[in-house]
Design a protein around this nucleic acid. Structure first.
Length: 271
DNA sequence: ACATCTACCTGGTGGC
DNA sequence: TGCCACCAGGTAGATG
């Protein structure tokens, strides 16, 4: 479910509601990607100061330490009525005096990790290598272009890797490259400054619009208040193999890069 | 240092 | 209807 827009929409949908909340209890379901890293009882009595986002990680700042949440491929956060029984795919319940925050994640690629602080090795391991924030002020064309210059891999895979710019997942990578007119197989270090400028703008545009629309994916998405962003953003190429390009009518092509599907228009997107 | 592959897990879909 | 192969939005860690 989540690429950066979905994670950001999730953050906005529950940050205000959880801010200032005192943790009453924390309950784990089946194992997630990594262990919590502390006994759930140690969280009791902590106060949630606020929620930040770094890449696709949600950072719940506590009065002591922090929780790093990742939604993986199928995770979602909702407020459940206190007392509601956890379902088979509910794997983390954070009961507070301001509501019950519940992580639902069928595939369990998601994670909830406790760290003593941002310099805690467990947090650094997850956050240190992350690239520029695409919607933030640090995402400047020159820095982006310089990052691409260091990489010989295909631009699509460099975008997905998240160490040059974070948050561009499989769907938005195809979409941004279409908007920028760049073939996904183009070597990252062969992209000129003007084309990098176009890609920079395309990434901000496609991610920014998705956030404004409330997070949109080709399946379904609900924010923590249970509101859907279903199908509010039309895909230009993603999932459209064989269908006419919306710009030039040429059939959209599908290729595999690193076992992941990439969609592109062979006419509108040049190497 | 970099690029590529593997693994983690469940559910939905389409073919037979 | 059942069975099965294949697909799915992420990413750290192992391997080349």
């Amino acid at each position: 479910m989540p690429e950066l827009p979905e994670v950001e929409v999730t953050r906005r949908s529950f940050a205000d509601r959880i801010a200032g909340a005192r943790i009453v209890s924390a309950t784990l379901g089946k194992p997630l990607r990594w262990p919590l890293g502390c006994a759930p009882a140690e969280l009791v009595g902590r106060t949630v100061l606020g929620v930040r986002r770094r890449g696709k990680y949600l950072l719940l700042d506590l009065d002591e330490g922090l929780l790093l949440l990742h939604l993986g491929m199928s995770g979602s956060l909702t407020f459940a009525a206190p007392g509601t029984l956890a379902g088979v795919h509910d794997h983390f319940d954070l009961l507070t005096n301001q509501g019950l925050l519940r992580l639902h994640d069928p595939r369990r690629f998601g994670a909830v990790v406790h760290a003593a602080g941002e310099t805690d090795p467990v947090a650094r391991k997850l956050l240190d290598h992350l690239g520029l924030e695409p919607l933030g002020d640090t995402f400047q064309v020159d820095a982006f272009h310089a990052g691409l210059k260091q990489r010989r891999a295909a631009i699509k895979q460099v975008l997905l890797a998240g160490d040059v710019v974070v948050g561009v997942g499989n769907i938005y990578a195809s979409e941004a490259l279409f908007l920028a007119g760049i073939r996904p197989t183009t070597r990252a270090d062969r992209i000129s400054l003007p084309r990098a400028r176009g890609l920079h703008a395309a990434i901000r545009d496609v991610l920014g619009r998705a956030v404004e629309k409330g997070g949109s994916t080709l399946r379904d998405f609900f924010n923590a208040q249970g509101e859907s962003g279903y199908f509010q953003l039309e895909a230009a190429v993603y999932g459209r193999a064989g269908l006419p390009c919306r710009r030039c009518e040429t059939p959209v092509r599908l290729l595999k890069q690193g076992q992941r599907s990439t969609f592109f228009c062979p006419v509108c997107q040049r190497p």
